[in-house]
Design a protein around this nucleic acid. Structure first.
Length: 113
DNA sequence: ACGGTGACACCAG
DNA sequence: TCTGGTGCCACCG
């Protein structure tokens, strides 16, 4: 299997898993990578989500960094600001330090799937 | 082809 | 807490 095929397959796995995150819950980049059996590949999750169109059916907004914060970047062309708006619409609140409470909102995937 | 870059994470101080 | 350094590895010019 070519490397490029393995990679796009990995991206599909990422999208499929992110789709399972229910409204009002979030996962971290590292958590997604680990759940897919690739610890330390958190950056790949960011790359995969970067390619997702803002109006996609993939709930890309439900993935944040390990500090419970939205990762900002000029490259995102404002989708980072949109991310916060979408999450707040789902009932998620941010504290004065722009952080959401991971203990409260972290998605716990059902192991029996 | 190759080196800089980055929607990350973790650790030391 | 916060900051800086390090590990990681696909992406892109």
């Amino acid at each position: 299997m070519k490397t490029s095929d393995r990679q796009s397959h990995f991206y599909q796995q990422i999208y499929q898993l992110v789709r399972k995150i229910p409204p009002g819950k979030v996962a971290t980049y590292g958590q997604i990578a680990e759940l897919l059996g690739r610890p330390r590949h958190a950056r790949q999750i960011g790359y995969a989500l970067y390619r997702v169109a803002p109006d996609s059916d993939i709930p890309w907004q439900r993935v944040v960094n390990a500090q419970g914060m939205i990762s900002h970047s000029p490259q995102r062309q404002g989708s980072d600001d949109l991310q916060r708006i979408l999450l707040e619409q789902e009932g998620i609140t941010f504290n004065s330090q722009e952080k959401l409470d991971l203990r409260r909102y972290r998605w716990q995937p059902d192991l029996l799937e």
